[in-house]
Design a protein around this nucleic acid. Sequence first.
DNA 1: CCTGTGACTCGGG
DNA 2: CCCCGAGCCACAG
Length: 112
Amino acid sequence: MSQSTEKIWKTLQQVPTGKVVTYGQLADLAGLPGRARLAARALRVAPKEMALPWYRVIGAGGKISIPKDNPGFARQMELLRSEEVVVNNGRLKLSEYQWQPDLADLMWRLEF
DNA sequence: CCTGTGACTCGGG
DNA sequence: CCCCGAGCCACAG
């Protein structure tokens, strides 16, 4: 895999239960500013065995970005709800659930 | 090499 | 709130 893709994966592992990040935010935290599309792609190609919390990644407006006709849409909603995240019509309140990394988390990032 | 296509985002209208 | 276009970029065809 490309190194950029791996950075996305590692960063995503840091997102705690019950919290979410947007594609753009994930890319930024991974040290890849402006690469939201890469983040989306990294999720799609991630091997299942990695068990990444892919469902904790949503669109910038607080909306689930998976097309509604894709079975993953409903799955993402139920997974989020299983973590106490309130989701309505594929929407959730970013002000309440968006992950705000603390200093320790940012330090961790220096490891790659 | 060129083109189309996104699990993206932001700014306009 | 929706739709569009423009950036953006890896990747398949």
